[in-house]
């Protein structure tokens, strides 16, 4: 039975291109890859999973608890 691929896309509709076929028909599978610095993606065009380095991820700061959005604030 094929596992359903229904995880989130990146918030910008996935600007991550598949390194195998170049398609942008990709979706993010998980926040982590083999190391913390990687996220896992799946290419719907060539049906290949691949890892993507998070640097430059404009969405990396989204979906964080409020106390992490104003970190390093001055003493209260």
């Amino acid at each position: 039975m094929q596992k359903e691929k229904s995880k989130k896309q990146t918030a910008n509709g996935s600007s991550v291109a598949c390194p195998f076929c170049g398609s942008k028909e990709t979706q993010q599978e998980t926040d982590f890859g083999t190391t913390l610095a990687y996220a896992q993606f799946y290419c719907r065009q060539c049906r290949t999973p691949f890892e993507w380095i998070k640097w430059g991820d404009e969405n990396a700061g989204n979906d964080l608890p409020p106390f992490l959005l104003h970190e390093k604030s001055a003493n209260v």
Partner: peptide, 10 residues
């Protein structure tokens, strides 16, 4: 499987 990688990383 994805959760296993996350658990290991964390």
């Amino acid at each position: 499987l994805e959760a296993c990688i996350a658990a290991c990383s964390m």
